[in-house]
Structures are given as structure tokens and as C-alpha cells.
Design a protein around this nucleic acid. Structure first.
Length: 429
RNA sequence: GUGAGCGUAGCUCAGCCGGUUAGAGCACCGGUCUGUGGAACCGGGGGUCGUGGGUUCAAGUCCCAUCGCUCACCCCA
């Protein structure tokens, strides 16, 4: 193979006909469009933020437990003034930034926004994880009410259902308020420190910085130690308010008939998350089974230098959902085919075909063929495109000033003048 | 950052124990076929066998390195 430039590893072209679901454009569009319909139906408005921001936008909320920048998990670039920029690794912080920048606090609250687009993470790619991937994202800002959490969760679940997915599971938890988390981390350190020598090196390293992450270690020995010590889950460390908030969300979901399972150890890697956290999981979408996740982030706006703006929202991984659709064999609605395929039979007929096509558009979806060697080829081309009608334009037609129109399902064929064609395609059908 | 598997035509792959000029199917283009149903038949283009080195009389095949892809670990907003 001759050396040839290719797409960057972990990024993909999204093609009309791709072998794999995540990179097949009609699948992609189906997911975004379905989500858009559900979210608009709830009063959410679409916005788009730039795909890059000042690095601090994504850094401020990340916090001490997370060395995301240091570990090169963000694509960082420098502008001419030497300010550091980052390709967005998540939509939430950018949307909160936009909320503050444009004074959305004077809009009727809560402000429900959604967006979709590319997200960038400098990780090594594997199944369902790419360096450029796409998310649909919803945020409800300006009000700290558990009913908004329940609404967000219900909307997210409804998107998956509307897409035709069945085998997914909603896992709900709470990461508490910052002080609850501090208490819990303290508890974990106290409990695990005496047994540090029995933990895996990775877990030992987490003991100081982020002990909650030890809980979902894949190391068997670690899990054995955790079981032996009878470690209590995060959920038992919620403060009074966080506890009441959590119970309220649960009650609302039950009232809504949204099925969930409690995950008492749901963890978030970023500092700005508080209270409600949830994930939707599905088998066979890669090493990690999450189709998407969400949570509440009441402290984020302040971390970005803004006023206190409570918020709750979720992100849906488009490629992950595509894998789930493939796994469940969900049929994607096919793109519409042209209604009419115009086949010029000689060079002179090419422009006649184009003139006619332009007259019929946009009422009718008309595609023009190239000049084929014979009408048989033209017919084959038409059949391959799945059209309903094929119109031949050749010498005979030119002499009579007509188009030979063939209706493919019936094989019925007649000669029509342009005006008759117009009424056929422009009238009610 | 760590580990494993895989690299032969646009795609899917075959190629024996190392042996002559590297193959098939699909796809594409053309012909049979300037006036009608996806066919069939015939023909064609397309490969430095990922790259570099080594062993050998001889390497797609064996060895080493390197690059790429994939999967998993780490991490996961």
C-alpha cells in the first residue's frame, strides 16, 4: 500500500454506506433526529457552543481528584496570544459558560437547552471509545428542584425507547454534596489504609487522591478486601438535604413509572457533580457499557466564576447508541429514494433532462442519470436507485416533444408532455 | 502509558513444508446491447503482499525492527 494520508486514529468518517453502525450516516442522523424530537417536545431549545473554549472552562470544574489535563486527555492548543484552548471534552461546562455569558438568568427559569456535536478526548481508542465522538446533550439550568432531575431522567429514557432500544438499564445514585463526599472519602481512607498492602498498586495510589474509585476496581483481590471490610456505600453518607433530595427523585420516578435500579456506588470523575447521578447501561456497546449518563452540577457555574446556577443534565453517546441499535437489530428508516429518474439517451437530451428536472423540483425528488449506452442500462440504473418512475429522453421524444414515462412497479408506460408531468408530480399524490 | 491479536486488490478473503509470472468472489469500467426490468456470458483496470532490514540458491510465507489497525488495561466528563 502506497503511503497515503488517513483520518487520525480514533476519528472516523461517517459515510452513507458504512459497514459499522457507529459510522453509518443514516443511523447517526436517526439518533440525533429522534433525540431532537423528544427534547423539543419538552420545551428544550437547541444551542451550539464552539467546539473549542479557553482551557479553564473545562479545567475549573474538573477539580483536584482529576488530573485530566495532565494526563493529556484533553486536546490542548494555543492561540496567537498564547492562551491555552481545548477542544471540548464535554458539553456541560461550555453550556453553563454560555448561560452566564448571555445572561440567561433573566430568561424564564429553568432554561432547558440541548445540543449535539463532536466531543474530543485524547484517549487511546477502543470499541465504543473514540478520540472524536458525538453526543446529544440536554441541560436544565437555573432551578434546583428534584422534579427537574426526574424530568431529565424520564426524557433520556424516552429517547432510548423512541429509538427502539429495549435492553437498557437505568442506574441511579447520588454522589451527595461536596462535604458528604469529603466525609465518605475520609471514611474510606481510614478503613482501607491499614490494609493498603493488600490492595493493588493502582488502588493504593488512589487511596490518597480518589479513594471512591477503588470501589469499582476490577482487581479480584481488591474486591475481596472490600467485601471483607464490609465497606459502606456512598449512599449511606448522604447529608440530610442530599438524602431528602435523592428520595424525592426516586419517588418522582416511581410516580412516572420509570424503572430504575439503585447503584449505591455510582462515581463521578469530576468535582462539580453533586447529588443526583445516573447512567444508562446496555450490554455489547464496548468495554464500558454506558450508553449515556447524567447528573446534577449545582456548583459548576461558580467554579467558572459565575453566580450560583443549579443545573441538571445528561449526555448521550451517539456511537454507543448506534452499537446498541446494531446489537438489538433495530431497523433504521431508509432514506427516501428519488421519485423520478430522468434518463437522457443521447448527449442532446442531457440539458433537456436538467431543465425538466429543475422545473419539477423541489416538489418532486428528481435525479438525472448520465448518458447511458442504451436504454437497458438506464433502466438498470433507475432500478438500483429504487425510484418509482423512470423518464426516457431521446431522439423519439425530442421529435414529439414528450417524455416517455415508465411506472416501474406496474411496467405501465406512456408518453407525456411536460405539462402533464407537472400535474402528475406536483398535484396531490 | 501497559498488554495482546491482526496487516495480501476498493471490500471479504485464499495462498500448503519457503519454490516459477500472486489468486478468487464481490464491486467498478467496457463489450455482446441506440429504445426497455436488476440477469447471463466475455473482456478490462486495479497489488512495490504495510514499511525497512536479516536468513536463504529462492521470502507473501521464516527471523528482527518499525508503522498502522483492532481489542483490552489505565482513565472515563
Amino acid at each position: 500500500m502506497r503511503p497515503m494520508l488517513k483520518a487520525v486514529s480514533g476519528s472516523s468518517d461517517i459515510l452513507p454506506q458504512a459497514k459499522e453502525y457507529p459510522f453509518r450516516e443514516p443511523v447517526f442522523r436517526y439518533i440525533v433526529k429522534t433525540a431532537e424530537e423528544v427534547l423539543r417536545g419538552a420545551g428544550a431549545q437547541m444551542i451550539h457552543t464552539p467546539i473549542f473554549e479557553y482551557l479553564e472552562v473545562f479545567q475549573k470544574g474538573a477539580g483536584s481528584t482529576s488530573d485530566i489535563v495532565v494526563k493529556k486527555e484533553m486536546f490542548v492548543l494555543e492561540d496567537r496570544g498564547k492562551r491555552l484552548l481545548a477542544l471540548r471534552p464535554e458539553p456541560t461546562a461550555a453550556i453553563v459558560r454560555a448561560y452566564n455569558e448571555h445572561g440567561m438568568k433573566v430568561w424564564p427559569q429553568p432554561v432547558r437547552l440541548f445540543t449535539w456535536g463532536p466531543i474530543f478526548r485524547g484517549e487511546r481508542p477502543q470499541k465504543g471509545r473514540y478520540r472524536q465522538f458525538h453526543q446529544v446533550d440536554y441541560e436544565a439550568l437555573g432551578l434546583a428542584d428534584p422534579v427537574l432531575d426526574a424530568e431529565a431522567i424520564a426524557l433520556m429514557v424516552r429517547i432510548y425507547k423512541a429509538l427502539g432500544l429495549q435492553n437498557f438499564e437505568l442506574r441511579l445514585g447520588s454522589v451527595g454534596d461536596p462535604e458528604d463526599r469529603a466525609r465518605y472519602n475520609q471514611y474510606l481512607r481510614g478503613l482501607l489504609l491499614p490494609h493498603a498492602n493488600r490492595l493493588s498498586p493502582e488502588s493504593r495510589a488512589r487511596l490518597e487522591a480518589n479513594p471512591m474509585r477503588i470501589l469499582d476496581s476490577k482487581d479480584e483481590q481488591d474486591q475481596a478486601v472490600l467485601a471483607e471490610l464490609g465497606v459502606k456505600p456512598m449512599l449511606e453518607f448522604l447529608g440530610e438535604e442530599a438524602q431528602a433530595f435523592h428520595e424525592q427523585v426516586c419517588r418522582y420516578l416511581e410516580r412516572l413509572g420509570v424503572a430504575y435500579t439503585i447503584d449505591p456506588n455510582l462515581v463521578r470523575g469530576l468535582d462539580y457533580y453533586v447529588r443526583t447521578a445516573w447512567e444508562v447501561h446496555h450490554a455489547h456497546v464496548g468495554a464500558k457499557s454506558a450508553l449515556g449518563g447524567g447528573g446534577r452540577y449545582d456548583g459548576l457555574s461558580e467554579m467558572l466564576g459565575g453566580p450560583r446556577v443549579p443545573g441538571v443534565g445528561f449526555g448521550i453517546g451517539v456511537e454507543r447508541v448506534a452499537l446498541a441499535l446494531e446489537q438489538e437489530g433495530v431497523a433504521i428508516p431508509p432514506d427516501p429514494s428519488p421519485i423520478l429518474y430522468l434518463a437522457p439517451l443521447d448527449e442532446a437530451a442531457k440539458i433537456e433532462a436538467l431543465v425538466l428536472a429543475e422545473q419539477l423540483r423541489p416538489k418532486a425528488f428528481v435525479e438525472i442519470g448520465y448518458v447511458p449506452k442504451n436504454p437497458r442500462k438506464a433502466l438498470e440504473e433507475a432500478l438500483r436507485r429504487g425510484v418509482e418512475y423512470v423518464g426516457f429522453l431521446g431522439e423519439n421524444e425530442r421529435a414529439k416533444g414528450v417524455v416517455t414515462l415508465k411506472h416501474l412497479p406496474t411496467g405501465e408506460q406512456r408518453e407525456l408532455e411536460p405539462l402533464q408531468l407537472h400535474s402528475l408530480f406536483e398535484g396531490p399524490r
